[in-house]
């Protein structure tokens, strides 16, 4: 297929900024708008943009299908595991206060961990669905 030069170069220029924005949304979620869900979707958008511009194989080199499909349950496990960690440390399920000696730091750590879990599941699910649709159609 013959792709447009401007589109390819423009995509290459804009991709790092989208990724940087996703990381910002993920880790700045406690201070500004955003969080794991939004960041996950933006990361998925990066992969989908690569697939649309450079083809499915280029996207699969960045995010292999097997890895993406393993990340779908991994995110839920990170989230649920944070809850279990609270149980093991003597608190209630999903009680972050016991994760660290300082309760406020424990809450921050817990929020950080579950946001990572949400981002992993959301981004990989969106990419996996995209792969499933595209592979079925081709």
């Amino acid at each position: 297929m013959n792709f447009d030069l401007i589109l390819r170069i423009g995509t290459k220029l804009i991709l790092p900024f989208i990724l940087l924005f996703a990381i910002y949304v993920q880790f700045h979620g406690e201070y500004g708008p955003g969080g794991g869900f939004q960041a996950g979707v933006i990361v998925a958008a990066v992969i989908i943009l690569i697939a649309i511009t450079f083809g499915l194989n280029a996207a699969k080199r960045v995010a292999p299908r097997g890895l993406v499909e393993r990340m779908v349950p991994l995110g839920v496990l990170i989230y649920a595991g944070t809850g279990i960690a609270g149980l093991l440390l003597g608190g209630n399920y999903l009680d972050y206060g016991v994760l660290l000696p300082e309760p406020v730091s424990g809450h921050l750590l817990g929020i950080f961990a579950v946001e990572i879990g949400v981002a992993v599941t959301v981004s990989s699910t969106m990419v996996a669905l995209f792969y499933a649709f595209v592979e079925r159609g081709s």
């Binding site: 406690e30 708008p33 969080g35 999903l94 972050y96 809450h107 921050l108 929020i111 579950v114 949400v118």
Partner: peptide
């Protein structure tokens, strides 16, 4: 004071209503 997160939306989603988000 409780969670150290200045964004109340994030604190409610991930902490107070952690079960819902799970």
């Amino acid at each position: 004071r409780e969670t150290g997160s200045p964004n109340i939306v994030t604190a409610v989603l991930a902490d107070y209503r952690g079960f819902d988000t799970l």
